[in-house]
Computed example of a mutant assay.
Amino acid sequence: MINKDLLKKTEGVLLNYKTIKAEINNLLLEIEEVEAEYKGVSDITYGEKTGATNKFNSSVENEVLNKIKVVEKLSREMESKKRLISKIDNAMGTLEETEKRIIELRCFEGYNWNKVGMILNMDGDYCCRIKRAAINKIIPLVWVFNKYAN
């Protein structure tokens, strides 16, 4: 039996598939922007030296280190989203063409059941049942960890 939380989670991912792909691209752009900012950071020198200090790092070093941490965090998030999209793509590859097309039309394109049924020349309610069965097929493929964690 399929866990209802995993069913909702999977439906949510499918409904947000395009958004997740856009987030991956935006994360990549953000990483490039942050990297460009810290690669252009340089130390500012003043004409007069004030005195010896016991400070081990400068504000420039701190800024660069903080930006490196931001890039690492953004990279981890982007890689996580990429893996999720790859899992969805792999799972979708196991479905029959009708199942795949129904998920694409309903979840990725956002069509209502009447429109999905009209496009596929099927009853909308029947398409809904096929979608539910297809999601039940892909849940164990997408959420592999949950399968072995219990």
Rank of each mutant, 00 (worst) to 15 (best):
V71W: 00
V60C: 08
A149V: 11
N121K: 15
F56S: 09
L6S: 00
M1A: 01
F145N: 11
I119N: 01
A149M: 15
I20T: 02
K82Q: 13
K39E: 13
Y148A: 11
R101G: 03
M122R: 14
G93Y: 01
E96P: 07
L6N: 02
K55C: 07
I130S: 05
N112Q: 10
S58M: 04
R76H: 13
L84T: 10
E33V: 02
I130W: 10
T45C: 10
I138K: 13
E37A: 15
T53R: 01
M92Q: 05
Y126P: 07
N57H: 10
K115V: 11
Y46C: 10
E104H: 07
S80I: 06
N150A: 14
I31R: 00
E63A: 13
L84E: 03
L65V: 09
I31S: 01
I68Q: 14
L84G: 04
L95F: 03
K67L: 07
D125A: 12
S80D: 10
I130L: 11
T19E: 15
F145G: 05
E77G: 12
E61D: 14
C107R: 08
W113T: 01
K8R: 04
G117T: 06
A91Q: 01
L28Q: 14
E63M: 14
E72M: 06
K147Y: 12
G124F: 15
I68E: 08
I44W: 09
Y111D: 05
I31C: 00
N114L: 14
R132D: 14
A91L: 07
T53C: 04
N66K: 13
T94G: 02
K8T: 03
W113H: 02
K115Y: 12
N90S: 11
F145T: 10
R83A: 12
R129I: 06
I119M: 07
T45Q: 09
L29R: 08
M78N: 08
E104M: 07
L74W: 06
K69P: 05
N26W: 04
I103E: 02
E48T: 15
L120I: 00
W143Q: 07
N26L: 05
G40V: 05
N114F: 09
G47I: 08
F56I: 09
I31P: 00
D89S: 02
L120D: 00
